[in-house]
């Protein structure tokens, strides 16, 4: 296999799904369902958009997202990368807040 061909193989999007668990922080509304299976190849930005939709948030409504109550990931990082590094007991825990919590 040539190098260029190998690069093409690595570009293919993985269809695998992982479990993302949403946890409200502070005054943020709690979600009735908080476990979702999300395609791992998605960027974290897609998770933020999904969450905004589920919460019925309008454009401009403040929403801050964190992993493991600790840090905000870059929105262009993939769910797969975050899951591999930070999953707890098979779940990627995403905390959300209406105010900056761990800025």
């Amino acid at each position: 296999m040539e190098g260029a061909e190998a690069l093409e193989t690595y570009k293919k999007k993985d269809a695998a799904k992982v479990v993302v668990r949403f946890k409200a922080v502070g005054n943020a509304p709690i979600m009735k369902q908080n476990f979702y299976k999300i395609t791992a190849a998605n960027r974290f930005q897609a998770v933020i958009q999904f969450l905004r939709k589920e919460l019925g948030w309008k454009t401009g409504d403040p929403l801050f997202t964190y992993i493991n109550l600790a840090f905000s990931p870059a929105p262009d990082d993939t769910v797969a990368n975050l899951y591999k590094s930070f999953a707890t007991e098979g779940h990627l825990i995403v905390n959300y807040s209406t105010t900056a919590a761990w800025g």
Binding site: Q45, I67, N68, A70, F71, S72, P73, A74, P75, D76, S85, F86, W102, G103
Partner: peptide, 28 residues
Amino acid sequence: LFTPSIETCKQSFMGQLKEADFLRWGNT
């Protein structure tokens, strides 16, 4: 993905710094 400003760039830098800290030690 970001409003192009120095302030959001700083916030993103701090986020990366904390993510690196969490990877190393399991906390920030």
